[in-house]
Nucleic acid binder design. Structure first.
Lengths: 217, 217
DNA sequence: ACCTGAACACCGTTCAAGT
DNA sequence: ACCTGAACACCGTTCAAGT
């Protein structure tokens, strides 16, 4: 919805506007992810683009608005996934499908997710003042609910959260140094899928608190 | 080393200095974690403390220096853990011990880790200009090496990284809403320990790429 | 439609000066 | 030892004005 914005009249103008706008978005993403949102000044972006600071306000109404434009698409994709998941039966197959789809989203937007991860504080106060609270926390919780089941025991919630974190952190952290991207994908899926299913505590637990924890105090 | 700084002469002065300094640290940690490092101005901190902006520079030589002072202790603890781990045999017991110790560190410094997590970008450029690169990335990698073994296959590296992330993210994310903190600890340990050991792929793999992936293309 | 120049309030930092 | 007031360069944002 932000990417295919060119449709309106790209043959009419110099198409230079579209060009400047997307160069701006591309450059901002790179700089925000690399050196951080707050450490990247609009002056730096403008200089590299060959325009004035003030010119940027023709394309975006604020610095935060640039981030919103970069993130928007992926937030929508996650929302779609959540909506889809809510209509699905609570089976192992559904959980696996959620993991696969989430993985797909993250893989396609690794740079954006890296940028989000690195600028959590700056981004979460971007909450648009509207009801879309926290932007991440909330959606994390929704996905955890879908995977572990609503009001699941903490242990299963932790497993589900770890499952999701493994995917995103794993992508961001290893994508650059992994020789074969397919191998990384397979490894991530393997770990994530293992975490997506609550294990029926096969081994009688290696922590001191086993089933015996009911006896305490 | 930063906490027990009072030893020098706390009976001599008004002990008001020590007091202002630690009130400053406490307040800064709270604000940085809550609203973010960059969104928290020194003016706000100073006002709440009842002094001028400039007064803060008597205690810390820069804004970043406040963060360094907050983080220092925990970085040192992690470094100690890494150093200890390097001298240990590569057994399952060692891995379990590393997980337990890491958990201990994170539990004791949850607020600091939350603050680090939320301000990654701001903090990682705090790299002191010295060689202590990235502050987190690097130490993460060292711990992963200790758990998975150096130059382990990606799958095992991912498992080890997930193990560590489960602990820190799990603490930060669930500590506040968990009814019983002991239960949370047990749940986190359970998941982390499962991830700390590479599974001998018991089930013949549920991803499309099994051992058969060698045949491809 | 696309961009500039100049001004705004605010930020982190420095420093001479006060007690 | 502990703190202030005033100044510095820089930041994001606005706006009237130019083409």
């Amino acid at each position: 919805m932000e990417e295919n914005f060119s449709g309106a009249g790209q043959g009419l103008g110099r198409d230079n506007g579209r060009d400047t706008r997307s160069r701006l978005r591309e450059l901002a993403l790179q700089l925000f992810a690399e050196q951080g949102y707050e450490k990247t000044s609009l002056r730096e972006i403008a200089e590299r683009l060959g325009v004035t600071k003030a010119a940027l306000y023709y394309y975006f109404k604020s610095k935060e608005d640039i981030v919103r434009s970069l993130v928007e698409d992926y937030v929508a994709q996650v929302d779609d996934l959540i909506a889809w998941g809510k209509d699905q039966p609570r089976t192992a197959a559904t959980r696996a499908e959620i993991v696969h789809r989430y993985m797909e989203i993250v893989v396609n937007g690794t740079e954006v997710f890296r940028m989000l991860q690195q600028n959590q504080a700056a981004v979460s106060s971007l909450a648009s003042a509207k009801e879309r609270g926290e932007l991440f926390r909330e959606r994390m919780d929704s996905l955890v609910d879908l995977i572990a089941g609503r009001d699941a025991p903490i242990r299963d919630q932790v497993r589900a959260a770890s499952c999701l974190m493994s995917i995103s952190i794993g992508c961001m952290h290893y994508q650059r140094r992994a020789a074969d991207p397919e191998e990384l994908r397979a490894a991530l899926l393997d770990v994530a899928l293992e975490l997506a299913d609550a294990t029926p505590e096969q081994a009688p637990s290696r922590t001191k608190l086993g089933p015996a924890s009911l006896i305490k105090s």
